[in-house]
Amino acid sequence: MSSAKKTAGSVFKNGLIVENPTLRMLLGMCPTLAVSTSAVNAVGMGLSATLVLILSNVVISLLRKMIPEKLRIPGYIVVIATFVTMTDLALHAFFPDIHKALGIFIPLIVVNCIILGRAEAFAGKNPVLLSAVDGLAMGLGFTSGLLILGMVREILGNGTFFGLQVLSASFPQVIVMILPAGAFITLGLTIAAANWIESRRKNA
């Protein structure tokens, strides 16, 4: 990543897999745990964050030569907060159900460390197009992490997948999966699985 010249492809793969924000970098844990009770909520949260991430990466990359070094963090926060507010209003208008389910975690995208982290680590130093790709890839990486968690929790806890019944009604519903405890345990096991795959890949 550091030595080779960055191409759109390598940036994309880096965001989605190598530095997957949820499973490898452990960023943005709060929304991951909180909204992954169902696959729909997970995708809604993931895509909202992706949108903010792309837009803020683009704008920060455009402004990177204008923002003074000392004021960059407050500057980034204002840019991010603006896009979060726009996303919040848009969700409220077009997807009121998802807006209600995600609740307080939409304004909290502002303090999601993935977004400020990418602004600081990537968009502040790289050209616009690459920053947009990075935002998209990191956003999709976050969404996929959320979706894995949301899928497992919804299927086991509720017997449904995107609201459709997949497990027969006689199959016992594991209520704990929907509760906070299930979120922590599922995420812990998923991260352990990601670590295991990574270590196998390295040894192979």
Partner: peptide, 18 residues
């Protein structure tokens, strides 16, 4: 091995949450 760090931490947090 793979459980080191955050993985075991999150599972512990899960049991605490329970």
């Amino acid at each position: 091995g793979p459980m080191h760090g955050a993985a075991i931490g999150l599972i512990t947090a899960g049991i605490l949450a329970m």
